[in-house]
Design a protein around this nucleic acid. Structure first.
Lengths: 120, 120
DNA sequence: AAAGTTATCATGCGGTGCAAGGTATCGTCA
DNA sequence: TGACGATACCTTGCACCGCATGATAACTTT
């Protein structure tokens, strides 16, 4: 049974763009992204989320990947954002601003007052 | 093909609680909720979203419903929030605040300019 | 009657987050 | 050499929910 928390659903459509935003500041490998998303409260994810997501981003041409095998280090697959990925990240910034503003407006404009049926 | 916009995914897990928030100010019927959510930019929905959602909320005991058949008016099914629904709505307020703050933090703290890391 | 508007409802699809499970490499200890 | 834990990668399948689509019904208008 999958946990049906509110947060789980809220994360929909957000983690992917967030990964792109992270990658826009420099290449990273998978577990690194998991840790960074975890560090930002509320964006906690699991590896089972990040790796399929990275595959999708890769298939979509939003990121590239290359193996880096240094001595004394485990082989790591680094993901680097592409121009298309940057564009997508920028688009998301606008989408998120618009969307979050709408939700916040609805939440703040309506105070949970008494039940008064209005017929405007 | 279903439209796969970013907004579509962003709405996940938001519309339900938003409906609860709306209902916390007074009972409404289905189409009324559609119009009000549509009025708040970015939360546009269709009837095919709202009615199944109301059923889910009803099954979950978060709302009750009662038919209202006034003369000179079409029969309308009004939905009223329950105490459990109010609690859920309040929980969502907290969840949303936490979540949106996390995302906004990630978006603003990272400017897409730098690429100051290695291997440019 | 016929057509349009308003309202409710059911069905099925599709994307995505996530749990669960698996493989491979490295360092350490004995 | 072998065992073990930590790190890092990856796959599979499920469940949820927004949405397109279409049906039904009642009231109003033509």
């Amino acid at each position: 049974m999958v946990q049906n928390t509110t947060s789980t659903q809220l994360r929909r459509g957000v983690i992917g763009p967030c990964i792109l935003v992270l990658l826009s500041t420099g290449p990273r490998f998978g577990l690194q992204l998991v840790r960074e998303l975890d560090a930002v409260g509320g964006l906690l994810t699991s590896q089972g989320t990040v790796y399929p997501l990275l595959n999708r981003l890769h298939d979509g041409g939003l990121v590239t990947s290359h193996w880096e095998v240094d001595k004394g280090e485990r082989p790591r697959r680094y993901y680097r954002i592409t121009d298309a990925g940057r564009a997508e990240a920028e688009t998301f910034r606008g989408d998120w601003e618009h969307f979050s503003h709408s939700v916040s407006t609805l939440l703040t404009h309506l105070t949970p007052a008494t039940t008064e049926s209005e017929t405007n």
